[in-house]
Amino acid sequence: MESRKDQHVRLFQETYQQHTNDFDSVKFIHDSLPEMSLKQVDHTTELPIGSWPVPFFINGMTGGSEKTKRINECLSQAAAATGIAVASGSQKAALRDSELLDTFQVLRRVNANGFIFANVGAELAVEQAKRAIDMLEANALQVHLNAPQEIVMPEGDRDFSSWLKNLERIVRSVDVPVVVKEVGFGMSRATFQKLIAAGVAAIDVAGNGGVNFITIENRRRERARFDYLQDWGQSTVISLLEAQPYIGQGTFFASGGVRHPLDVLKALALGARAVGISGTFLHTALEEGTDGLIAQIEEWKEQLSQIMLLLGCPNLQALRGKDLILNGAPLEWARLRGLRPEELAVRSSKLGR
């Protein structure tokens, strides 16, 4: 387990690159007269799990070895310094081996008052979920869904039959809000229906376009590779389009392929209430350390406000009423799924903006 965690980080570094993705197929319409000032911008986001001053956070990545302990320390130091939330990677390793506890507990030790997500897989039982929460004195729990990764992982699970029932038990039994997230393969309407019925506090659609665990796990296979599954799943943008009929019924987060503050704002405009960043921040942490990551997060905060000013949006509610133009794959997907993309293109007129 410890070796696999370090392999994931090494293979992430070897395969990391920022490239075009479906966020590039979502466009705002420029307005030459924003009619406001920067001091009017407020990007506070209200969530079932609390009020955050910034609508993005460091999403779950790693832990389970000495190397990943140092990474978690860096991530949590940056979260503490910038006041944003941070999520643990899967804590399964520490639940199996108490010697690995500190590779996760470092998140709380260096960020005593911060908002921290614990993280477990959907295959784990209620008692394990409670132990993961206690391990970090966590404010909320992420339960991750990663069936494609498990299939490609040489030693991965092959039985997903208990996942939904386990999740329902966890939601009923733990004392903190539960957020269900994918790990980079996106979600569909059918999944949203099940998760909303299960009573989860929020859903992180976590689509493809960023860190690709099929690529990473394929690199760990000596034979019988799954290269043909490289593009499996839905992008974050397409997953948010799938979520449109459920925006009023559930709270949605977005992650996967988020490269810069403009991507954050596009996800928020598509209905996400908060945006998780994994690969982009992990790459900075590995290359530039804590100081570099703190500087990047502060730059993102500033640029987020500046782009909201450019859009004439004093708050996130106004952003969610901005017209959006879809192109490429998201446009085709929306039309085939009966989602009426033309309504997104003119929604400001219906809201009187």
Rank of each mutant, 00 (worst) to 15 (best):
Q249H: 14
A197S: 14
A129S: 04
V120T: 11
A269T: 07
A318N: 09
R10M: 10
T284E: 15
V200N: 11
A140L: 06
L167A: 03
F185Q: 07
L164R: 05
G233I: 06
E150K: 09
G199W: 09
L11H: 14
V171Q: 02
G199S: 09
M36N: 02
S25L: 08
L270T: 03
G60A: 04
G321S: 13
P148R: 11
I247R: 15
R96I: 07
G60R: 01
F117N: 08
K181Y: 10
A190L: 11
V174H: 08
S25R: 12
F253Q: 06
R169E: 13
E137T: 05
D231T: 10
A272D: 07
F115M: 12
A80W: 01
G210I: 04
L316G: 03
A81I: 10
F160I: 12
M153D: 00
F192H: 15
V346Q: 14
F56P: 06
P154D: 04
I216R: 02
P314Y: 04
L339R: 12
F226M: 00
A93L: 04
D97I: 05
L33P: 10
S65T: 02
A285G: 03
V178N: 04
V120F: 00
M1P: 05
G248M: 05
T215K: 08
S25H: 08
V205H: 09
V179T: 02
S32F: 15
L268M: 10
Q230P: 00
P48Q: 01
A132M: 00
V264N: 06
S278K: 13
N327C: 09
Q142K: 02
I294N: 06
L262M: 15
N327S: 13
G321W: 12
L331K: 12
Y246F: 15
L240F: 05
V200C: 02
E298P: 00
G250H: 13
I297V: 12
L11N: 13
Q142I: 02
A202P: 07
G256E: 08
L47T: 14
R353G: 08
I49M: 11
I238V: 12
I294K: 03
D31N: 14
K322F: 07
L324W: 05
H43C: 14
